[in-house]
Simulated scan of single mutants.
Amino acid sequence: MRSDGGALRPAEGGAAMTVVYIDSVFALNALADYLLVYAAAQLAGARLRRGRFLLAALLGGAYAAAVFLPGLGWLSLPPVKLSAGVLMALAAFGGEPRFLRLTLLLFAAACGFAGCVLALGLAAGQRVPMENGVFYTNVDARVLVISAAAAYLVLTVVFRAAARRRGCGGLLVPVTVAFQGRSAALTALCDTGNALRDPVTGRPVLVAAAERLNALWPPELAAELTPEALRAPSAVMERLAERSGARLRLLPYSAVGVESGLLLAVRLDWASVNGQRRERLLLALSPTPVGDGCDALWGGPEE
């Protein structure tokens, strides 16, 4: 171990020594790990808990640095690497409804990032220093930043574009809904089987669990738009019919294994679905939860 923060490792063939700077290893890998967990969360539409992402990145950086410490070479063994990745996933996504999906996306993002770094390093005519899958010492900062940006674009833009082409089925996406100066954040499941459409505009209707929308309603509506009250949507509609600000309508629906019925729907000021702002979107209120791990169902894209 060097006193200036570096560690010595024998190069292949034992002819020379490789200088590894622990602080550089920690910083580079922590940065890469933060981008990885952020990209995985974006892909899955999970909440962006940046504090937890930072904790996961610090754990990843600490693990990468520990690999080079004397007597800790066993940390680079595949089972230990796998365990370290799962620990990072727990730090970043523990408690999320789709933890397994997020963990798999994290590992996929790691593979994509490593491939981008190696490819761009070769294209630039530079050797990217790596040992046991860990970046170390004199990685060119430009190569690292460009590689990180390329990996992020591939994982978030290309994959999401492919998801939109197939109707984004199965993805969880972030949603924000706004009504009379109030807003609420939701997580919506892109459900290609949701064919509910606005009878006026023909656009998809966002269906959300009423219990997740308490913060959206002004006081005069909050007591009326409860899950219990919405089990009788026609009665709610009748009570609120004279309140012009409510902008309500009844939507007929049918589902497999469920009798047809009506849902009370509200015309929003606007909604943001996966980053796309939609003016005056219709929000249908479900008196029961709409699914496991999500607050709402989205049947987009629009025709």
Rank of each mutant, 00 (worst) to 15 (best):
M130P: 02
F26C: 00
A188H: 02
P78K: 12
G202V: 05
S272C: 13
A229W: 14
G85Y: 06
G133F: 07
A149H: 01
A15R: 10
R278T: 10
Y21N: 13
R9K: 09
L35H: 11
M17A: 14
A141N: 07
V273E: 02
G275N: 04
A246N: 10
G293Y: 00
L206I: 00
A188P: 00
L120W: 10
E279H: 11
R142C: 06
A265G: 00
A91M: 02
S272E: 15
D198W: 14
L118Q: 12
G299S: 06
R239G: 12
R164S: 00
L144G: 08
D4M: 01
P252F: 09
A15P: 09
V290W: 00
R249N: 02
R247Y: 08
A296E: 00
D140R: 14
P204A: 02
R47E: 12
I22N: 01
G94E: 04
L58G: 02
L28R: 13
P252N: 06
L106C: 10
S272W: 01
A114N: 15
D33N: 09
A223P: 10
A210C: 01
G6I: 01
V86I: 15
M1Y: 08
S286T: 03
C111D: 06
N194R: 01
N274M: 13
I22V: 12
G169W: 14
T187C: 11
A56R: 03
L240A: 06
V200K: 08
A7E: 12
N132K: 14
A64Y: 05
G167I: 02
G181C: 02
P79L: 03
G257M: 00
Y253R: 04
A229F: 12
P78D: 09
Q180H: 09
L283V: 00
G169T: 06
A57C: 07
G125W: 15
T137P: 07
L100D: 14
L31S: 04
L105M: 14
V19M: 11
R142D: 11
A162F: 15
T201Q: 04
A161E: 12
T18M: 11
R203C: 05
A151W: 08
R127S: 10
A161V: 06
A149D: 01
R203I: 04
S260C: 05
G115V: 07
D140S: 14
A184L: 03
C190A: 15
N274G: 12
L54R: 01
V207N: 00
D23A: 11
G300I: 01
R249M: 15
Q126L: 13
P233I: 05
R49L: 13
V25E: 05
R49K: 14
V86S: 08
A222D: 02
G5E: 11
A222C: 03
A62W: 07
A124H: 09
L171A: 03
R52G: 02
V158I: 15
E259S: 13
R165D: 10
A232Q: 15
P218A: 14
Y21T: 04
A265H: 00
L262Y: 08
Y152M: 14
L55D: 09
F53R: 01
S183C: 14
E224G: 03
A232F: 14
A246I: 07
R239A: 13
A41W: 08
A210E: 03
A32V: 12
A44C: 12
R166A: 02
L36A: 12
A114M: 14
V258W: 10
L283F: 03
R203V: 01
P10K: 07
I146R: 08
G71T: 04
V205E: 05
